[in-house]
């Protein structure tokens, strides 16, 4: 186990050390102490590392993550796991806005609530939020899956492409071109798998699926007023 105290070492030094690790150092645990809301902690990783951030992190924590598993025991600020490619990021507290923005792969799990624009422009990531999400969740989501065990704020799934959204609680409003959809067998199965994999003992039948009506992303002049 390696321990880095961010009161004594800079985030830049930490990230540099993590980037320079030779391949084969996998499964070594890293514990990061006193994050103090600092930005860019554990960004740009490309190793099978197991990282635990002990406290509250600032913006872009675990951004651009590839292969690493990162756990934050507290809250995170704007853009946690933004543009993640693979690996996983677990947040035990609440997340700020734009959690998982543009992420292409991997898994982002938020135990608390996520603020506005969770999963904005998601492109293949799986996002599981155990609490609620703010407004404009999955805005322009292109691919991937989002599970929300609480409620969703206004304009859920606005201008959605092919991302699939499952919400258990209420949805304040749906964004342009986002509609409620039938839960077919494949959706029940994928939701069951996502819940099970994350240790969530939820009843699949209580969730509603939302997806794109596919009217907006092929431009039709008749729809011009809906943009």
């Amino acid at each position: 186990m390696n321990t880095v105290d961010l009161q004594k070492q800079s985030v830049r030094d930490l990230n540099h050390a993590l980037h320079q690790l030779p391949e084969g150092n996998e499964n070594v645990g890293w514990e990061i102490l006193n994050p103090g809301g600092k930005h860019n902690i554990a960004c740009g990783l490309d190793r099978e590392l197991n990282i635990r951030v002990d406290g509250h992190a600032g913006y872009y924590c675990a951004g651009m993550n590839k292969r690493a598993d990162v756990t934050v025991t507290g809250n995170v600020g704007v853009g946690v796991a933004e543009n993640m490619m693979s690996g996983s990021v677990f947040v035990q507290g609440n997340a700020g806005q734009s959690a998982g923005a543009t992420a292409r792969g991997g898994l982002l799990v938020i135990d608390g609530d996520a603020a506005a624009r969770c999963g904005i422009s998601m492109k293949g990531v799986d996002i599981v939020v155990k609490g609620s999400i703010g407004h404009m969740g999955a805005f322009m989501g292109q691919a991937g899956r989002m599970v929300v065990c609480g409620n969703a704020g206004e304009a859920l799934g606005d201008s959605l492409y092919e991302a699939r959204i499952y919400v258990k609680g209420s949805v304040a409003s749906l964004g342009a071109d986002c509609v409620k959809k039938e839960m077919r067998g494949q959706h029940v199965q994928e939701l069951q798998e996502l819940l099970y994999a994350n240790g969530l003992n939820e009843n699949v039948s209580e969730f509603t699926r939302y997806g794109s009506q596919r009217n907006l992303y092929h431009f039709q002049v008749d729809n011009a007023l809906a943009y």
């Binding site: 809301g37 809250n75 603020a115 506005a116 704020g153």
Partner: peptide, 22 residues
């Protein structure tokens, strides 16, 4: 504006922390 301003407050580790809604 950012959490790091609050990081030094006493008892912050166990505070309720959230983003105000619009």
């Amino acid at each position: 504006t950012e959490f790091r301003s609050l990081a030094g407050l006493p008892g912050i580790a166990n505070a309720r922390i959230w983003e105000p809604e619009p």
